[in-house]
Measured scan of single mutants.
Amino acid sequence: QRITLKDYAMRFGQTKTAKDLGVYQSAINKAIHAGRKIFLTINADGSVYAEEVKDGEVKPFPS
Rank of each mutant, 00 (worst) to 15 (best):
T4W: 07
E57Q: 13
Q1V: 15
P60D: 05
D20H: 06
Q25C: 09
I3M: 14
G56P: 02
A18S: 08
P60N: 06
L21G: 01
E57F: 11
P62Y: 04
H33G: 11
V53E: 15
M10I: 14
A27S: 11
Y8Q: 01
N43E: 11
G22M: 06
K6G: 09
I3R: 04
K19V: 10
T4F: 05
M10W: 09
Y8V: 00
A34N: 10
G35C: 07
A27W: 11
V58Q: 06
G56L: 06
K30G: 11
I28M: 05
E57T: 12
I28G: 00
A9W: 09
T15D: 15
I42L: 09
R36Q: 07
Q14P: 15
R2Q: 11
G56R: 06
A31Y: 08
Y8G: 01
A18G: 05
V58Y: 10
V23A: 06
A18E: 03
L21V: 06
D7H: 05
A27P: 02
D55C: 10
R2A: 08
S26I: 10
F12A: 04
Y24E: 15
D20R: 06
F61P: 03
F12R: 04
K19M: 12
E51K: 05
R2M: 09
I32G: 01
K30S: 14
R2F: 08
T4I: 05
E52Q: 04
A27T: 14
K16I: 05
I32F: 03
A44R: 04
I28S: 00
T4A: 14
P60V: 07
A9M: 12
S63C: 11
I42K: 05
G56E: 07
I28Q: 00
A27K: 07
K54Q: 10
L5F: 01
I28D: 02
F12D: 02
N29T: 14
A9K: 06
D7M: 06
I3L: 12
Y24M: 15
I3V: 12
A9H: 06
K54A: 13
P60F: 06
A18R: 02
G35N: 13
L5K: 00
L21H: 01
Q1T: 14
S47V: 08
T41I: 15
K54L: 15
A27D: 15
A31I: 07
K54R: 12
I38Y: 01
K59E: 09
Q14W: 11
K54S: 14
L21C: 03
I32T: 02
M10E: 15
H33I: 15
T41M: 10
F39C: 08
T41A: 06
D7A: 07
T4K: 08
V53L: 13
T41R: 06
G46W: 05
K59F: 15
A31K: 01
R11P: 00
S47M: 07
I3H: 07
G35I: 03
T4V: 04
T17F: 02
E51P: 01
S26Q: 10
N29A: 15
K19N: 12
F39W: 14
K54H: 12
R11H: 09
P62I: 04
L21Q: 00
A34K: 09
G35Y: 05
I42F: 08
T41S: 08
T15N: 12
G13I: 01
F12L: 04
D45S: 06
F12V: 07
Q1F: 08
T41H: 07
Q14G: 09
S47C: 08
N29S: 14
Q14Y: 11
K30N: 14
A9I: 15
G22R: 06
Q14E: 15
V48D: 00
E57L: 13
Q1I: 14
E57R: 13
K16A: 08
L40G: 00
E57C: 12
K54V: 15
D20W: 03
A34S: 13
D7E: 14
L5M: 04
K6C: 09
I28K: 00
K37S: 13
Q14A: 14
N43S: 11
F39N: 04
P62Q: 04
V53A: 07
S26F: 08
Q14R: 10
A9E: 07
Q1R: 07
G46N: 06
I38E: 00
V23E: 03
S26V: 10
K54N: 13
T15L: 13
S63Q: 12
G56Y: 06
I38D: 00
L21Y: 00
G22N: 10
V53R: 06
R2V: 13
G56V: 04
K6P: 07
N43P: 04
G56Q: 07
E52I: 04
Y24P: 15
I3Y: 12
M10H: 13
Y49M: 10
T4C: 07
S63A: 12
D45A: 06
K37F: 09
Q25H: 09
I38Q: 00
N43W: 10
D20C: 05
Y24R: 15
K6E: 15
Y8T: 00
F12W: 11
Y8E: 01
M10L: 13
E52T: 03
P60E: 07
I32Q: 02
R36A: 07
Y49S: 12
L21P: 00
G22H: 09
I28Y: 01
E51F: 09
R36H: 06
V48F: 05
N29C: 13
Q14D: 12
L21A: 02
V48T: 05
K59N: 09
R11D: 06
G46V: 02
A44N: 12
G22T: 03
T15K: 13
E52A: 02
T4R: 06
